[in-house]
Design a protein around this nucleic acid. Structure first.
Length: 653
RNA sequence: GCGCCCGUAGCUCAGCUGGAUAGAGCGACGGCCUCCGGAGCCGUAGGUCAGGGGUUCGAAUCCCUUCGGGCGCACCA
């Protein structure tokens, strides 16, 4: 038996076909022109121009000093492609276009799973996302983070990578300290009283947080209380630490509930207090000192601090202050310092580990400093770490990476990925609607949200509004439905609407949040995708009711005549076939809007086909089979995409 | 001052490893259900791709530059 090494894993049938054709063409170019050229594969803009386009002749024109169309013509002549290609033609400026066998290819796609063999190496990827300060309700900016993180995780897992999802809880920071000061010093409340506060506790804290900000300004001495509180939180001693624990626990519970509404979950909650409690930084500190990555500043404005010099790094050229403080002159550790320790732990480089307990009996773990459960899954020790953090923190994320490099962990530094996305701001209309615009003089186009000032749209409020509006729409159409079914449907539609809204924007663009836009459910929206699935389902149900088969098998499809495939019908199949590549691209480039756009394009083509090519009242059985096959292919791809986007598929709407 | 992001139709945005007539959605206007549900489909109007230079057979796309807008550059996280 001959052993054939498998150099390339198959992502999808379509990609495999493209690779095959590319290789054929490459070889042919070599034979005819004696040139080594790796051909690019594109899709012609319209199906009547072909299914695949090779602009090779356009590229070769320069080297060969000949007209592109001439070159393409010569290439087309002796080219031998596999039987899945029906014909080749020269189009436009000199594209070599390929027409595929529609029936046989559709049949093969129908049989194959959407995603082929697993691509992953089996090495764990750690994705950190959400990371909301535990002192207030989640707002729509946090939603963008969580949704992007969640979609990324779903894509990576689909592609075969083991993924661990971590949600970092900063329970020793100033933001939580402010909440503690608010309850104890400003409102004079006891631990029991705070414990007894009714839900929604995160809403209470939202208001409290902005009040504390104003309270500080009334009297300059009050900031001293915050410093003392922060110190107690860090040392984990005293009543303020107790209050901090209570507030953080209740708020985290609320955040988890909010995210659960959108189908977002986690494997592990890592808490900053445990990083301190277990002296993670002490280990990192020793390593940093030993490697010379940080040094003690003796003079200047940073006197008494341990700083990381950044001047040598080209990435930080032009900085006013080329040093970053890691340990303050009072001995406390900055955020970056803690983050370097955390990042080291994620890669298994710290030489220490947390203790772990279950979060409130759920299938979710949290770190602890002592008294952990002995039997827990292995956490950390990732091969690659992706931190989903907004673009404003690019500078800090860079420092963490440089820190790893300075410690000699260049490999891990290169596998430390900052998934940066731009923030969510409020549109002028939204700001006005919420009463943040005092006068008419403010002409700004968008307004940054601020937890500190209490400016923003709470995630739960937005979800509530979306659900209420959608519930009305469903109730109008289905007056006979009971309250539970209505709630359930409204939830599914609202989840789709908001998740899709957050993913469809490219990551480099600031989202200027607008209520009208976010609460619109037609056009490029989640419900538009769901509607296509509802329609597809309805066709099958009608077929069944009419006593007809609801599916066609591959053998039948393979035997269909080529002329049964209208261009738009075939185009639907071809678009669906590209799904795995789009997902792989999106995951690799961290541009998840590509997944959303693919789902949109598919749904759009389905809707058009739905109107033009009816199935139920088509008397020609062969035509019916071709149309059913196209829709089956659509359904498989679309279901896969909606799953990746976290968009639920309702039975009706 | 230095760095990153954005500037494309009235509005919100795709397209950016250069290539086939610059595309969607919303809004506007006009059509399409005795129905596989109109949360849909089809059509019309709407664009000096911010301005200026350059590279190229070819630029929304690459380079330079100017002008707008956003965000970073803490002993805050």
């Amino acid at each position: 038996m001959v052993y054939t090494p498998r150099t390339m894993l198959k992502l999808s049938l379509f990609q495999e076909l493209k690779n095959e054709l590319s290789n054929n063409l490459r070889q042919h170019i070599e034979e005819v022109f004696g040139v080594d050229h790796d051909p690019v594969v594109q899709m012609p803009p319209r199906r009547d121009l072909g299914d695949l386009a090779f602009p090779a002749a356009l590229h070769l024109a320069k080297v060969l000093r000949r007209k592109p169309r001439e070159i393409a013509g010569e290439l087309a002549e002796g080219l031998r492609f596999p039987t899945s290609v029906s014909r080749v033609s020269v189009e436009g400026a000199g594209y070599l276009n390929v027409f595929l066998e529609r029936s046989s290819l559709t049949a093969r796609i129908l049989e194959a799973p959407v995603f082929g063999e697993r691509q992953g190496s089996g090495e764990k990827i750690i994705v950190e996302h959400t990371n909301i300060n535990p002192n207030k309700a989640a707002h729509i900016g946090h939603l963008r983070n969580a949704v992007l993180g969640d979609v990324l995780v779903r894509c990576l897992r689909q592609l075969g990578h083991p993924v661990e999802i971590q949600n970092y809880i900063d329970d020793t920071g100033v933001q939580l300290a402010d909440a503690v000061v608010g309850f104890i010093d400003m409102r004079g409340m006891s631990l029991d009283e705070v414990e007894a506060l009714p839900e929604p506790f995160d809403y209470t804290c939202w208001d409290l947080y902005s009040e504390v900000g104003r309270w500080y300004e009334e009297d300059a001495d009050r900031k001293a209380v915050r410093r003392a509180t922060l110190h107690e939180l860090e040392s984990d001693e005293g009543p303020r630490a107790e209050m901090g624990k209570l507030v953080a626990r209740r708020i985290v519970g609320r955040h988890l509930a909010t995210m659960k509404r959108l189908g977002i979950g986690y494997d592990l909650l890592t808490r900053e207090s445990d990083i301190l409690g277990l002296n993670f930084f002490a280990s990192a500190f020793e390593k940093l000192k030993a490697s010379g990555a940080i040094c003690l500043e003796e003079t200047g404005k940073n006197a008494g601090c341990w700083v990381m010099p950044l001047a040598q790094s080209a990435e930080f050229a032009g900085l006013e202050d080329p040093d970053k403080v890691i340990v303050r002159s009072d001995g406390t550790v900055t955020y970056v310092g803690k983050d370097i320790a955390y990042q080291l732990w994620k890669f298994g480089l710290l030489g220490r580990d947390f203790d772990y307990v279950r979060w409130e009996g759920e299938d979710l773990w949290e770190t602890t400093s002592s008294g952990g459960i002995s039997s827990h899954p292995e956490f950390g020790v990732g091969k690659k770490v992706i931190n989903v953090i907004d673009a404003r923190q690019s500078y800090l994320q860079k420092i963490v990476r440089v820190g790893l490099e300075a410690l000699g962990h260049t490999e891990e530094a290169s596998r430390s990925v900052h998934f940066a996305y731009e923030m969510v701001s409020l549109s002028q209309a939204a700001a006005r609607h919420l009463g943040y615009l005092s006068g008419a003089g403010d002409e700004k186009k968008s307004f940054e949200m601020s937890g500190r000032k209490g400016i923003g749209v709470k995630a739960d409020d937005l979800l509530d509004q979306a659900e209420a509006k959608l519930r009305e729409m469903v109730a109008e159409r289905y007056p006979e439905l009971d309250a539970d079914s209505l709630d359930d449907l409204a939830r599914q539609l609202a989840t789709a609407a908001l998740r899709f809204f957050m993913v469809k924007a490219t990551t480099t663009r600031v989202i200027a949040f607008d209520f009208q836009e976010a609460l619109s459910f037609k056009g490029e929206t989640g419900p538009y995708l769901q509607y296509s699935m509802v329609r597809e389902r309805k066709i099958r149900r009608k077929l069944q009711e009419a006593g007809m088969a609801t599916e066609v098998d591959a053998a039948t499809v393979a035997g269909l005549d080529a002329e049964l495939w209208a261009d738009d019908l075939w185009d639907l199949v071809l678009t669906a076939a590209q799904t795995p590549e789009v997902v792989a691209d999106a995951s690799e480039s961290l541009e998840l809007s590509l997944v959303a756009r693919q789902a949109l394009e598919l749904a759009g083509k389905f809707h058009a086909v739905y109107h033009r090519h009816r199935i139920l009242d088509e008397t020609d059985e062969r035509l019916r089979h071709a149309r059913m096959a196209a829709i089956q292919v659509f359904r498989k791809s679309s279901l896969a995409l909606l799953d990746l986007l976290g968009v639920p598929v309702p039975e009706k709407m």
